[in-house]
Amino acid sequence: MYYKDLIKMQRYPHSWCPGCGIGSVLKNTAKVLAGMNLDHTNTIAVSGIGCSGRMAGYLNMDAVHSLHGRALTSAEAIKTVRPQHNVVVLSGDGDLFSIGGNHFLHTARRDPDITVVCNNNEIYGLTAGQYSPTTPKGTYTTTSPKGCKYEPIDIHGILRTMPRYFYARSTVWHVLHMQKCIQEAIQWKGFAFVDVVSDCIEINGRHIGYKKASEMFAMYKEKYKIVRDVEVLGPHDLGVVKKE
């Protein structure tokens, strides 16, 4: 199976800005699905709302574009009714952790067998640049003109409070690593969360000192390091942590 068979190419050109990390998340998710022979006969995609929430609709399978923050609840219900199918959620940081924060907490606790790929670009892109729950403290956004006052949410830390968890972190520069994380997440029996650090050059990057996406990618390469066999990921560690 070729990954492009899993993408609705007839919908192109897509709705994302040039240089946006979402394309990389979508493409690499499709590559993993293709490699695992997962298609419309055995897989269902779910999204929330936002730029990242548009991803599910580009996959060439039954896709549910649910409501803002509600992708996880939607996915869990779908998995309940269609237990033989893989259910993959593709959404963003604002959707999953802010308006969807309560659902994130409780879905993770109930541990349904679903996979979540989060395009974590630390910003509300579609509404043009407000701080999200993962925006680093001090960052300029349109709603924090003097720098974001709050510490970002610690998703890795929240998941590690669960008796059983799967958390992976990668970036849109480390694409092979991202693919490995997504594949392992799909294979995990339970709630598997892949946190993909991603760029939003137009709405975020340009306002915090990056001229183009490649500069952000270079930053990811420089700043984030792949680690193996650890129980806890440091803030700039990439890898998989899980507990049976």
């Binding site: 897989t43 039954d62 574009h65 649910s66």
Partner: peptide, 10 residues
């Protein structure tokens, strides 16, 4: 769900 290539969107 899981039988086609549909898009259920709001």
């Amino acid at each position: 769900l899981g039988t086609g290539k549909r898009h259920f969107t709001g």
